[in-house]
Design a protein around this nucleic acid. Structure first.
Lengths: 288, 288
DNA sequence: GCAATAGTGTCTCTCAGACATTATGGT
DNA sequence: ACCATAATGTCTGAGAGACACTATTGC
């Protein structure tokens, strides 16, 4: 079965006819289009799910806040462009460089032990004809989950950079350039559902963490309160999610076991959010 | 709560500075890039999950099979381009025109009763620098699930069109142009997981159908055998998935109730596939 | 009668959620 | 003493999967 399958990644060879045709092909005869990559970098800042934004230093929308991003360079892969932007903004390298353009369940194991493995996946592409007043611009948006954005610093055309709570973004603070509010909304929804069936929540934590730390990540991203006992039981019952380091740390009031991420990326069973069917009563549903 | 939220879709207004800047902006100074839309149109043909392919009538790769698609027109939205291509290839209109660019759980109810509601959602964007020998080409791929492709017919630059079983595609038959084999693989994976937690399987069926028809759709897409009794119980226990029409039809040997799609798009509870952990024994696991 | 499918009922096992209880150690 | 958190254990209900059984009708 392994030998009979063709390599899906290999492009077909060109024929002589193809080469003759390409010699007469003029790429400049079409309407100009720009392709950009924008990254939604999510992290937990002071207990809140937050997004890294840069204040635009050039027109259009100079002074407004926007997602970090930029034009895709010639001969640069989309995933490579996203990774480059992520590095420029956070100064943090990625653990899983070649997997940057894959994402999804097919992705390989992550996390060489000892490195904070940031997460990066393609989110969606936005191409409304009027979304950029300069010209027709297609933006391939990426979602990044990082434990630490380093010292927040501006990039090339960014006068300033700051972590903004997602809760505020959803209420329109601050004003965002282009259609970036919509992109962030989609990214947060993707992140929320990714936490259900993958182990990416560990990308929002340092190398070692307690079960309580992991629970607070889920609470911050989902915006709910989780039942500590049930959460702990479910996490430890999911093979490969976390592995104990053997060390204990004095957190809260007592001693707690430290864990690091396991080798599993897709969780079996998943940590499902409570079904969105409202409980119809006002109290906070203590779930999980 | 409804009034305090800003409209995420409204673009920010331009300033005087922006207008002055845009007057001097020249879009032609960047390297030329082309943006295309390719559609993976999946349907059930003779009981097999199949994909609509067209044989290329022009170079490059003339004679090879490829996904239907084409260049995005100036001032044309990505979703509109995908919908246009889908119409051109199948001759079947979409039920849910404005939702074409949304997809995902946030999408509204589908299916005016009486119309076969095809499904269309953005899949992923492919932009490897060498994926098109003509020039740098960014392809925004869409996934479509349709009940009937109509009479299979070629489009503009297609010499021929045909439904190919997905099982053969995964083994390299036929040879595909560009990176379309990879795109189809991603689309099939997306479709398989969409069937778990949404009701899109009904998009692969005519307006009315039996529970057995619905089960055979799941079997064809997932490539497994499902337990008829358990499948029936789970489908009918999921509120809003299907609604009985009151009619009965003589299918198989006996009379069976006819159903049509319900108003629910996200299933609670989901119809989960058996956990991929192999059963380690050779027999076909009769699951669900 | 036989074959094939539709449909009902039941049993077991797993898991989610709620809750009770104890331990720990800083304030 | 008090309290917040960690950690363990138990109970109940929902759902998944397996299986037994009946009904119907074309062959």
């Amino acid at each position: 079965m392994s030998e009979s399958r063709t390599d899906l990644a290999a492009p077909p060879p060109l024929t002589d006819e193809d080469r003759a045709y390409l010699a007469t092909y003029d790429p400049r005869k079409y309407a100009p289009v720009a392709v950009t990559v924008d990254i939604v970098i999510l992290t937990i800042d002071r207990g809140e799910l937050s997004v890294l934004l840069v204040r635009r230093g050039v027109p259009p929308y100079r002074g407004l806040w926007a997602l970090p991003g930029g034009f895709v360079r010639a001969n640069e892969d989309l995933g490579a462009a996203a990774e480059r932007e992520l590095r420029e903004e956070t100064g943090v390298g990625l653990t899983e460089a070649p997997a940057a353009d894959r994402g999804g369940p097919a992705e390989a194991d992550r996390g060489e032990p000892g490195l904070a493995g940031d997460y990066l996946e393609q989110l969606r592409t936005y191409g409304a004809p009027d979304r950029d007043p300069r010209m027709r611009t297609i933006s391939v948006a990426y979602l990044a989950l990082v434990a630490d954005v380093g010292r927040v610093r501006g990039g090339d055309d960014a006068a300033d950079a700051w972590l903004w709570p997602v809760a505020g973004i959803e209420q329109g603070r601050p004003r965002l350039a282009f259609d970036h509010a919509r992109i962030i909304r989609d990214a947060v929804e993707r992140a929320r559902s990714k936490l259900e069936y993958t182990s990416v929540a560990t990308s929002l934590l340092p190398e070692t963490f307690t079960i309580g730390d992991l629970r607070r990540v889920y609470e911050a991203v989902w915006g709910v309160r989780l039942h500590p006992a049930n959460f702990r039981r479910k996490v430890l019952a999911t093979p490969g999610f976390v592995v104990p380091t053997g060390e204990k740390v004095s957190t809260g009031r007592g001693w707690t076991e430290l864990y690091r991420r396991g080798t599993t990326t897709t969780l079996h069973p998943a940590l499902l959010r409570r079904s969105q069917l409202s409980t119809a009563d006002g109290d906070t549903p203590d779930t999980l």
